[in-house]
Design a protein around this nucleic acid. Structure first.
Length: 106
DNA sequence: GACATGACGTAAT
DNA sequence: TATTACGCCATGT
């Protein structure tokens, strides 16, 4: 149930912007619950939802490697969706947070 | 309540 | 830069 807070934060991420698990956790009020964010998002796989999970990246500016492990096409889909929103993603799945990082608070 | 699990994060090696 | 180790916290058994 507590995941609703995380989902709410992820839904706030606007198009063309990305956030990290840690940031989502922080905004949700759980500074050290990055794992729970990932765990919560994992529950979204294969379900009907409106959560832009592709805008949530892993450490600092990298896409989660686990995505490609659990869902081989996931990383490709994520990159395609992000680029469609105007976010530049390189071959390694790295994104410049300085340019596309989500800045909440306003 | 103890124990195991997990789309993570940071520091140490 | 890549690997390993450990910490954190919500869930489920």
């Amino acid at each position: 149930m507590g995941w609703e807070a995380y989902y709410r934060v992820v839904r706030r991420i606007p198009r063309g912007r990305v956030a990290t698990y840690g940031q989502v956790a922080l905004v949700a009020g759980k500074p050290r619950a990055a794992r729970q964010v990932g765990y919560a998002l994992s529950a979204l796989r294969g379900t009907s939802h409106r959560i832009p999970w592709q805008r949530v990246l892993g450490s600092r500016n990298r896409a989660s490697a686990a995505i490609s492990i659990l869902d081989p096409m996931g990383s490709a889909v994520q990159r395609a969706l992000l680029e469609d929103e105007g976010v530049e993603v390189d071959e390694r799945g790295c994104v410049s947070l300085a340019r596309f990082g989500w800045r909440p608070r306003r």
